[in-house]
Write a protein that binds this DNA or RNA. Structure first.
Lengths: 132, 132
DNA sequence: CGGGATCCGGCTTGATACTG
DNA sequence: CAGTATCAAGCCGGATCCCG
């Protein structure tokens, strides 16, 4: 037996459960409404601004721009601007962003695949206490 | 060779990228500010309301209550109320919730473990364009 | 203890318009 | 095309009071 703690027992220097921890902010960028979908879309390959906008159905120009800036600042997305006319800007995941997006997609796809069960659970829930 | 498509190529009946898809709502419950932390906290075992409140640093009674109801409705959390005095209510993950929370924790822990890199990326970002 | 109901301020969001 | 600027609205979330 060793004294080296297993990964899930080791104390991490950052802890999302603590109010002031910066990891909570980054997690919100990643899992936020538009952040998650943006990372998911970019996981398949690089996309231009308006391609991304069409892929992430419902996002406004402002929110997409804002989301991309936050993800770029956190080092998850790389922005490649070509000073041509008309301008062309490509967005792609960094290696770190790719790792994050992979884990995010595992979650997203599991949720998508569980929607039948979720919808059934909702019906049961609404049925029993919907009479309120 | 078979005609059965591999999981990542198969078309899913639900698609988060579509604006009207119900999976987007569930994903937001799961990845939302308090939903993610609540699922993460419950992954280790069942907790009472105020235990949960202390564990998820910064959450208000209202938001925790709201979050738990959404997760219960989606079939991810089970609520066990004992009609004693004082009342005792335990919350625990359902099997489905456990699967979801596991994938969520993989993401959370990866982000926590990457915070050094994220913080460095931010410094570089702010340095180069902070002069705006 | 475990919440429900209500009020309310402000940050986020979403149109719209404008720019390089 | 790829954004920025502006502004109104609305929903989020906190504070408070209440009850079983």
């Amino acid at each position: 037996m060793t004294t080296v703690p297993r990964p899930e027992e080791r104390e991490l220097p950052f802890n999302v459960f603590a109010k002031a921890c910066p990891s909570r902010g980054t997690l919100e960028h990643v899992t936020g409404r538009w952040g998650a979908l943006t990372l998911g879309a970019l996981h398949e390959g690089s996309l231009r601004f308006n391609e991304l906008r069409r892929r992430v159905d419902g996002v406004s120009e402002k929110m997409l721009s804002q989301t991309l800036q936050a993800l770029e600042r956190d080092g998850l997305v790389h922005r490649e601007a070509q000073p041509t006319n008309p301008p062309r800007v490509d967005y792609e995941l960094t290696p770190l962003g790719h790792e994050v997006a992979g884990r995010l997609l595992a979650l997203i796809q599991y949720v998508e695949g569980s929607m039948d069960a979720v919808l059934e659970a909702r019906e049961r829930y609404d049925e029993t206490r919907g009479a309120r």
